[in-house]
Nucleic acid binder design. Sequence first.
RNA 1: GGGCUCGUAGCUCAGUUGGUUAGAGCACUACCUUGACAUGGUAGGGGUCACAGGUUCGAAUCCUGUCGGGCCCACCA
Length: 945
Amino acid sequence: MDLDKQYNSKDVETKWYTLWEAKGYFRPASDRSQTIDHRPQTTDKKKAASVDRGLSTVDSKYVIVIPPPNVTGILHMGHALNSAIQDILTRLNRMKGVDTLWVPGVDHAGIATQNVVEKKLAKEKKTRWDLGREAFLKEVWKWKNENGSTITRQLRRLGSSCDWTRERFTMDEGLSKAVREAFVTLYERGLIYRGHYIINWCPRCQTALSDEEAAHKDMQGGLYHLKYPIAGHKPPYEKMGEDHLVVATTRPETMLGDTAVAVHPDDLRYKHLIGKKVVLPLLNREIPVIADAFVDPEFGTGIVKVTPAHDPNDFAMGHRHNLEQINVMTPDAKINEHGGPYKGMDRFEARKKILQDLEEQGLFVRRDSHLHAVGHCYRCETVVEPYLSKQWFVKMQPLAEKALKAHDEGKTVFYPDRWTKVYKNWLTGIRDWCISRQIWWGHQIPVWYCEKCSTEYGVRSTAKNPSTEAPYAVPRTPYEGIIVSRTTPEKCPQCGSKELTQDPDVLDTWFSSWLWPFSTLGWPEKTEDLRKFYPTSDLVTAPEIIFFWVARMIMAGLEFLGEVPFTRVHIHGTVRAASGLKMSKSLGNSIDPLEVIEEMGADALRYSLVMLSAQDVYLSREKFETGRNFTTKVWNACRFVLMQIGDLQGASHDPAQFEKDKLSLPSRWILSRFEEKTAEIERLLSQFGLAQAATELYHLVWDDFCDWYIELAKPMVQSENVALKVETQKVLFFVCERMLRLLHPFMPFMTEEIWQTFKVKAGSPVTWPESIMLAAWPGREKQSFRDEEAQKAIGLLQDAVTGLRDLRVRSQIAPTDKLTAIFVCKEAKTREILNTFEREVKVLGRLEALQCVLEFKKTGAMAAHSYPAFDVFIPLEGIRDPEEEKKRLQKKIQETEQWIKNIRNKVENPSFAAKAPKEILEKEKEKLADAEKLLVSYQNQFASF
RNA sequence: GGGCUCGUAGCUCAGUUGGUUAGAGCACUACCUUGACAUGGUAGGGGUCACAGGUUCGAAUCCUGUCGGGCCCACCA
């Protein structure tokens, strides 16, 4: 019945998690056949009526949206923090009796997963092309089935109480259906188009990426200045603007695709050259000099080489001037047949060779060191290439407008608020979303091309000038020869041909993730879950995911269901290594959450993380010790309580069992303290202040409960006064049980383990829920124990005891020596209180006897400690170092005088009296009185030397 | 270039809408293996709240500027 001396996190965690899941506690209450009574039970009906049972919100629901982790992922600290926060919110609401749902799952992580499997194949010297699409996909599924549940298994280790019966995967049948529905719906609404544009291309993954997937990093690179001869001139080229122009570029290899050179139309230096031709070196192609306002005359020479197929700006310029687009690269970033002699070279190899060749021809001017942002593939870190290709896009502006409107109507709220701006800015300047990926693992685009009436994927042949497919000129009717369909079509509706080919590309993984809040609930079917749980309540995620996911989910929710998918968005900090860098495996600075769980337990991990999460979390191993020590403290405190209460009959968690006025002061105090802090914690939690709430709880448990109440209770439970003894046992039990419930969302495992023992202890006739998970959250109960008087009294007691302890240390009196102390207090009230606490002060201050007197003259060797309300003296064999003592007192006197001066200045300032609130004024006056009393005490002491 | 954020004890950070003599954890010093707990207890030392102005009776907190970190966004080659 009692708890083991040491907490065994491993066994306890497995035991309870298995049971919780088996019993269906993770499922929403409305799903379970038996109704669970969340109310604390009481045997006294009359008193019960006065207690708020926390049932008022039973009709409401709480649904949290979890970011689906990547199927290839393993749990890292970011997940751990994210899941800990979500689990706290979930457990909290469940305890409040709210119908609570948390749907878990993973996304298929198209590129990442495909990379993993391709790497595996590479070991057997095979590529996906060797296998073919179908066989390759089989391999990926095989891999997924074998390895894809790692992360969800790890989430369980953390204690995440998600409803695993509803677990989803973005490639599930249902979610795939949702993806098709979304695609086709958007297409029908004219919000999806296919176009020939510059996109971010990863040469290693060989696929297009969205703008968000190309992470820009500042890199020190070169800005190369090159000479382009003006047509008709011969080397040497020495007169800039007459026989040649100088252009600057960071990517010299793209010059192979140059189709113009541009200057600003008003740039007088070059006006005469507009319309003339220059000769593209190495390839000896004549290209025109054009005028375009995009060119910044201030930058470099004011002349830009224009490569429409390899740079988004040049692409736009190319459109304005009807320039040819010459793609000089193959999908794996080698120079293609348009690159003449450089064909077959890798882009960086070609760069070197080109610079070398230019140098030989006297066309290389110089290289400047240049810091610029270079895009990198977020999955493999390869430098992405702006690349011209035909891709599918979602037209974002109409979607973004809805999201912005919803936000203005107050339908979405960010915590903390500053992220609102980030969100809105992104939406305001949003660009179209490239959703097609040239990989195989994912949702294949539900578009079919008729082999008869459309050649080569339909539109490509008709698009000689891609400008006819500008993003905001989307045809209202489907492209001819293109079939966009929710189901696999059998024949072409135009010509009846059965020779149909599905678009080989798949959709961006986020195109399935952005549907998550409703696709997981069954959409597009009109399911019961969807009706009941949509829209959801909260989303908890990290800032880096706002664009990828949060904003897009909001847009999707509004577009497909007409409602925001969640109202509150909680953005927590990023987890970083102590060095400030992002934690990542490749940097070797990561701390594996599972190792921490093994070593210290999941509860310690969770508590530490949450306490640190007020801002970005900078982690080092030692930081987990705080949580570990705290869990140990809780364990031991509960162990003590269990030992003390023995076989107490009728131990109950019913607040109605106590009559405030009849309790001892310490009990009144701890009950008051708990009530006060519980309200505070409730307040903090309601505004997502989890870190602050965890800190409050930490101090409540450690400082108030363990350091003071338990110490005060020790003499009381050993008292011969049976009534006092039993009362104290009951309060210990009551407070401790309540503490466990407050702690449960933060440290689920240990609290359950202890609580079950408590439950056994409580015995009949009190009935308890089966698990602490189903017990009531104490935050909403009626306030009935607030007790100013007790708080004041215990404050005095704490001063008295602390003062005595201080005296002992300062006077070097052995802790075991019993002493007699004299308390001098002017006020009868204070004397009365100290007298009441005689027993407690004696025990905690290790006294043999104590006296409370009105006045006292120090005689002989005595040490003293002063408080505004009283002085305390103890006899002393001999003062160790009188000079030290004198100095100390002098310092104290000085400090106090300064203090008094400060308050005087304040209080006696007429403006203060006129303008400050009365409360503050009163407080200041009290302070002044206290300070003056203190000063007198110090001066008296000093005088006695 | 734009935006956000931070600068408080040796270290990591709390500090609500301005109002106790600015707090905690770790580290440090001294004492304590006391029957819940040494992953502990008691007591103590340690801070011009980055800097300079301003608003105010009153500023760590609000405003302006400066310096110094970090992050995000951005198509200037």
